[in-house]
Design a binder for these strands. Structure first.
Lengths: 144, 144
DNA sequence: TTCTTATATAGGAATCATTCTTATTTGTCA
DNA sequence: TGACAAATAAGAATGATTCCTATATAAGAA
């Protein structure tokens, strides 16, 4: 079963319609592994769907989050970024350029959630975020 | 040395002026342990500074981040939230109401950053984020 | 296949968060 | 106390996101 077929299947299961726009947005999101904004997805899709609206892109991405095939990435910024990587993974953020790197770590995956939190929260997800400055950006700083 | 005195000291060290607005914003941020937005700080301060502008609050909070006495909290939302808790700590987020709970864990603090990341990033900070639904919100859901 | 209807979309307006511009004010230091 | 760089207020501008509404369409029924 290929990507599009499995997308159709999920939509059916979740009771939402399989529209060409949704299919294109899903496809664009899966293609980009760099946590794109709605605007970036919008621009990418516009080539094939000249009349698509930015609102549709936002609405659709949020629908994907709701049905569990995408995540909103946590950031310090004021622009939502989306992630189609649904495997358990962690993030390293560059504080200068905003690049977000996915990485995997069994140690991090296996962390116990403290009892104190389990008492107060129904835990859905747990993730380590590392902040720093990427190589490219520290190089730039040196060049000044 | 009390809170205000130590604030004056930090400002002097960092070469920024000690203004009544900055002092009030610092004070309001320290008082609120619930990761307030600029708007919330603005409203809190307005009572005593009727002419303060929202821009000043934003600018000042970002200045505090720059000089290392506040953090911008990572969220999925599109509103910046600020944190005056500079101790190493971790966050649990309620996905329904947006509440953010600070918690402490030596195990989490001591996590090793994978070599793969250390090769590519100058690591500044590392934090565990837990997503879930808080007690109050799961109770609400049951009540429906 | 065609019809029906609930759902989804486009387009533009509206809203919310944040930043910029500029004239004025004010800490700070000589 | 005066000078000046830095900071502030006010409102305009920008950017991101959501809302409104008329139209279009996917999907199940006939």
């Amino acid at each position: 079963m290929n990507r599009i077929e499995s997308f159709r299947k999920i939509c059916k299961e979740q009771g939402i319609k399989v529209t060409p726009q949704r299919t294109a947005i899903f496809d664009a999101l899966e293609d980009s592994r760099d946590h794109p904004t709605a605007e970036i997805i919008f621009q990418a899709i516009r080539k094939r769907f000249p009349t698509i609206s930015l609102d549709t892109v936002y609405r659709t991405l949020m629908t994907f989050v709701k049905i569990g095939i995408a995540h909103v990435v946590e950031t310090q910024g004021n622009t939502k970024r989306f992630d189609a990587n649904m495997e358990i993974h962690h993030h390293a953020h560059c504080l200068k350029c905003g690049k977000i790197l996915d990485f995997y770590s069994a140690d991090y995956d296996n962390l116990e959630v403290p009892q104190e939190i389990r008492n107060q929260f129904t835990v859905m997800d747990k993730k380590v975020v590392i902040h720093g400055v990427c190589k490219k950006c520290s190089q730039k700083q040196k060049d000044l």
